[in-house]
């Protein structure tokens, strides 16, 4: 599954040069700057980055959950080849839930506390699959059983507050899968959970999506979660993708200095009380993104071109990275 998508097969999701801006009274802030990536059928793409890097915003822009003053200022988003970034709110609402499922950090974002969990599941199944009451209910019970809810024929009539945090997230996964979507966008699905429950949810999500061939865009700050479930990973920094490639390559041999720093900063269960690698400074605020490469002020290997032009994504090993160090012409010129 870690192989790149087969040539010719159209990706489920294509994002091209996505630009997202906030208009504030102090000027326009660019939160996403020419973000491009694909997700192939059945592929799990992990998106990592620190808070404010734009990873959640990318997910929100794809499913059209955008509120002013934010707006998509450029680029295209295509689902199975058809543009969805310019759809009317109504058409977008039909795509959300039906063709793109959503899982958020807080299960209560998706579960209405006033409805029984079954009501929401049955409703989603009826709207999207057109089954009658009895069939939809049977399908809902089967789904709950599949996500590991014990005694689903009884729990289907429970309210969200009667479920534990882990069980609620299982219900949300059932809800996201109910309409058999092409793509699931999961935004920090395990961040609010305890470690032992997190492991259960990751395993569950991975198994279900593999069985159904559902593509997943997994947004998280936790590289460990990505390592376990994703096929490819995109590392974001200050609104741009700085590296994208197969999980193994990015983790073991990151090409972008930020990705390398990030991997070294993660404490591991291996090794003893060693000092951690640290990147100096912090990610810039949106209103103070430096010219050229946004990582330049924190980068130990920055050289002349870094302050002049934004590095594009270029081939690096089995993936792509946005760093002038990978450009032979630039480094040769700087060496002279």
């Amino acid at each position: 599954m870690t192989a790149p998508p087969p040539p010719g097969a159209a990706p489920v999701l294509e994002v091209r040069d996505l630009v997202f801006e906030f208009r504030t009274r102090r000027g326009v802030l660019r939160a996403l700057d020419h973000v491009s990536f694909d997700i192939a059928k059945g592929e799990v793409l992990g998106v990592v980055g620190e808070s404010g890097a734009g990873k959640s915003l990318t997910g929100a822009a794809i499913i059209g959950l955008i509120e002013p003053p934010g707006r998509i200022a450029g680029g295209e988003i295509r689902l199975e080849g058809a543009r969805i970034d310019n759809l009317a709110p109504d058409a977008m609402r039909r795509i959300r839930g039906r063709r793109i499922g959503m899982i958020f950090q807080d299960p209560l974002t998706s579960l209405n506390p006033l409805f029984r969990v079954g009501d929401q599941l049955v409703e989603t199944i009826q709207i999207h699959l057109g089954l009658d009451d009895a069939a939809a209910r049977a399908r809902a019970i089967a789904l709950l059983a599949e996500v590991g809810i014990p005694a689903p024929e009884r729990r289907i009539d429970g309210y969200p507050h009667e479920f534990s945090g882990g069980m609620r997230q299982r219900v949300v996964i059932a809800l996201a899968l109910a309409a058999e979507p092409d793509l699931i966008i999961a935004d920090e699905p395990t961040t609010a959970l305890d470690v032992s429950v997190q492991a259960q949810i990751i395993t569950l999500l991975k198994r279900l999506c593999r069985e159904r061939g559902t593509s997943v865009m997994l947004i998280t700050h936790d590289m460990g979660v990505i390592a376990e479930i994703a096929d490819r990973v995109a590392v974001m920094y200050a609104g741009r993708i700085v590296e994208i490639g197969p999980v193994g390559a990015v983790i073991r041999a990151p090409r972008h200095p930020y990705a390398a720093g990030l991997m070294g900063a993660i404490p591991s269960l291996e090794g003893g009380r060693a000092r951690l690698l640290q990147i100096p400074g912090a990610m810039p605020r949106l209103d103070r993104i430096p010219s050229g490469c946004a990582f330049r002020p924190r980068c130990g290997q920055a050289f002349a071109p870094c302050s002049e032009r934004v590095p594009p994504l270029m081939a690096a090993g089995s993936g792509l990275a946005a760093c002038w160090l990978l450009d032979a012409d630039m480094t040769a010129e700087a060496a002279r």
Partner: peptide, 11 residues
Amino acid sequence: AVPDLAEIGRD
């Protein structure tokens, strides 16, 4: 239960 970078894609 800790997801670890050393074990990519483990089931």
